[in-house]
Design a protein around this nucleic acid. Sequence first.
RNA 1: AGCGCAGGUCGCCCUAUCGCUGUCCCGGGAAAUCGGGAGAGAGGAAAGUCCGGACACCAUAGCACAACAUAGCGGGUAACGCCCGUCGUCCCGUCCCGAUCCCGAUAGCUAUCGGGACUAUCGGGACGGGGAAGGACCAGUGCAACAGAAAGCAAGUACAGUUCGGCUGUAGUGAAAUCGGUAAACUCUAUGUGGUGAAAUGUUAUGUAAACCAAGGCUUGAGGGUUGUGCGCCCGAUCUUGGAGGGUAAACAGAUUGAGGUUUUUGGUAACAAAAAUCCUAGAUAAAUGAUAGGGUCCCGAUUUCGAUCGGGAACAGAAUCCGGCUUACAGACCUGCUUUUUUU
RNA 2: UGGCCUAUGGUGUAACUGGCAACACAUCUGGUUUUGGUCCAGAAGAGUCUAGGUUCGAGCCCUAGUAGGCCAA
Length: 118
Amino acid sequence: MNLKTFTYPEEKKLKSRKLIKQVFEDGKTIKAFPLLIRYTEHEGELHKVGVSVSKRNFKTAVDRNRIKRQLREAYRLHQQELTDSGSKFAVMLIYIGRKKMPTVKIQETLSTLLKELK
RNA sequence: AGCGCAGGUCGCCCUAUCGCUGUCCCGGGAAAUCGGGAGAGAGGAAAGUCCGGACACCAUAGCACAACAUAGCGGGUAACGCCCGUCGUCCCGUCCCGAUCCCGAUAGCUAUCGGGACUAUCGGGACGGGGAAGGACCAGUGCAACAGAAAGCAAGUACAGUUCGGCUGUAGUGAAAUCGGUAAACUCUAUGUGGUGAAAUGUUAUGUAAACCAAGGCUUGAGGGUUGUGCGCCCGAUCUUGGAGGGUAAACAGAUUGAGGUUUUUGGUAACAAAAAUCCUAGAUAAAUGAUAGGGUCCCGAUUUCGAUCGGGAACAGAAUCCGGCUUACAGACCUGCUUUUUUU
RNA sequence: UGGCCUAUGGUGUAACUGGCAACACAUCUGGUUUUGGUCCAGAAGAGUCUAGGUUCGAGCCCUAGUAGGCCAA
């Protein structure tokens, strides 16, 4: 088993303002509480993934950072479930819950969502 | 030893596996970069953005007005609205004394003396523990509900005194009643503040990009130069309107070595300053500093054979140019000083 | 990162230079009507976002906070 598939370096992050705008304007949506995923195809070499947590639901920066880190970690461990399909995606993971969740649960829901994604 | 008050210090730890962001070293490669290793990686408030600076640009920064801030006195500081010391005032706290209270005695029907109680109220004093504000209503303007004769160019009740004068005192209303009160009312005095804000600013790369086309405007001055107004100063066609229209949300510097930390000595009541030695301690940018497992520590609840077992939880909170403060949030632990209570000597 | 504004009954707004917090809608009760609405009469509901301070007295003035909103890019 190749350990390299568990990395999440700079190149796999969704950072281009243009691409993000595209994802939100004409991307598709799937959701399973407490996550919502917007995604679209793009012409890069790699999948691009970003995370987002609303300030309205979590007031302190500590809570928001914690959830963003949980989301990144979950994607890092389950990203190979996305690599099977041919085309590359730009994906935004959005946390829509109002309460904090244990990491295991977030990983499970993300895993099922990633398998649905086409 | 316990309780309380004040001040200060710290603010979860260890191991393993898998990741993230810089730095350094080794090897491969022409280079982009790839592989391996070492070491570093949030706070006391990083927060609120309430003050003061550094730094950059705008006339190397000007004048007047306006506006804003501060306010005993002395000191500290780069500076401050911050800190230290000190003065008088007020409030709270602690202690003491006297009166009101109770008991007894003596004279006598109200006083004196002695003792008790320490709860409440009132008056006075001491301690210096804690807190608060601290220029000027003899410059001018304004304000004062209800009550009261009257709330400030005046008017004037009752009683008493009287040098017989609308002179003095007392009463009555009220927070305040005749050299009054009020400036966290305007204002005056003294002192200080130029504006903007790292998304400042500079360099590089790509691009035709302060670009291109049309009309207007021309040194007799349009327009601009980051201030609320006026003046002054500087630039001098860089302007205005319309049309068409490419691209980027880039990299580096600013930017992490600084009014820096620690220890010692000296000066000073102290804040703090000086000298010597020693240390290097985040630098991200859709924004790193984490996740999981196990163990420990502490707290809460239940059970209990009082040894422990089980379950739950880990305060407030996340750097964004950098410093000095202030304010606000905060589980728990430790240290120092003082008051008081109990035990022992 | 920097700057600015607002908060008053359930809702929307008033309150002059500091002096008994007012109005409309909504709510409740009664009347009118066969009933409902309309209409008429009456009642209840706040102590002004929170905590301090100045003052005889604070919605208003000062200080600190909380919540919400807006602007610059």
